[in-house]
Design a protein around this nucleic acid. Structure first.
Length: 293
DNA sequence: CGGCATACCTGCAAGC
DNA sequence: TGCTTGCAGGTATGCC
């Protein structure tokens, strides 16, 4: 599912239910997701209080009161939902039709009351790890991540340094989490469309001989920042799996200009081109060959 | 090292 | 209807 805007939407849904809450019980229904879950996972979480729910790139970071951090990645199909944790009793038989692929359930009790936070992941490309907070930045999952596309982290000068000499196409360079962390297939296609840049153009062509950004790299930076901000504002894009933690759909998919629009007219004013689908490094790219150069 | 293909796993839609 | 094929928002790994 999820690129940065979807993960940020999940974070915003989890925070009110989890921050300040105690983990009373962990239900772990299988030993692994994409990778084995941490050893003694339940024992290490039960009884802990959650200090905060943060995000880095496409990772959720759940900080615990003993200094540990639960790192969670949703892969392609992972989702969290928050449900009322109704007490089990004679009159509550309806509690549990357990949805397929609900792998982990956090029973937490905090400012928002007793809730279940359920992790569901049909394809099991997601994964969870536990890190010591003091070494979070050097954790193997974190240490190679590049700039956040939000705030002031992403800027043309820094991007130029990373693009200089690169022969990889822009599509691949923007998907590279070591350069900008958090973009995925949808938002790379959308940002390139907005910047009218071809996904096939070599990344190094946006850097001049002195290693400084050319004007079109500035345009790309603005496009990335704007599309990510707009998608967060919309609660992300709901294609197959992504929902907000309360079950609501995101609606940025209605604002796609390129992604999954093969054969449709390009929406740029004055362009009579048609969106085309190509495959780059094994993944679909959608763009307008007429105006994206 | 850079660039690319492949593997991981399940579900769904399209085509025959 | 039922089967096969291809495709899906991501990352790690291995090969040239």
């Amino acid at each position: 599912m999820p690129e940065l805007p979807e993960v940020e939407t999940v974070r915003r849904g989890l925070a009110p239910a989890m921050e300040g809450a105690r983990i009373d019980r962990l239900e772990q229904r299988r030993p692994d997701l994409r990778f084995p879950l941490p050893a003694r996972f339940g024992a290490r979480l039960e009884g802990r209080t959650i200090l905060s729910v943060k995000r880095r790139a496409k990772y959720l970071l759940i900080e615990l009161d003993d200094g540990a951090v639960l790192i969670s990645h949703l892969g392609m199909s992972g989702s969290f939902r928050v449900e009322e944790d109704a007490p089990l009793g004679r009159f509550h038989h309806a509690r549990g039709k357990q949805a397929r692929h609900d792998h982990i359930v956090f029973h937490v009790d905090g400012p928002a009351g007793a809730v279940r936070v359920v992790y569901n992941d049909p394809r099991r490309f997601g994964f969870m790890a536990l890190a010591a907070g003091r070494s979070l930045e050097t954790h193997p999952l974190m240490r190679d991540l590049g700039m956040e596309p939000t705030g002031n982290h992403l800027n043309a000068e820094a991007l130029a340094r990373r693009f200089a000499g690169k022969t990889a196409p822009l599509k691949a360079a923007l998907l590279d989490q070591r350069i900008i962390a958090g973009l995925g297939n949808i938002y790379v296609c959308e940002a390139l469309w907005r910047a009218r840049l071809s996904p096939r153009r070599r990344a190094g062509t946006l850097v001049n001989a002195r290693g400084a950004p050319v004007a079109r790299l500035e345009t790309l930076v603005h496009a990335v920042r704007q599309v990510i901000a707009a998608a967060i504002e919309a609660g992300g894009s709901s294609l197959r799996d992504h929902r907000q933690t309360n079950g609501a759909l995101g609606y940025f998919q209605h604002r796609f200009n390129a992604y999954d629009r093969e054969g449709q007219p390009c929406g740029h004013t004055g362009c009579s081109g048609t969106i085309k689908r190509i495959v780059q490094s094994g993944r679909s790219t959608f763009y307008c060959p007429a105006c994206q150069r």
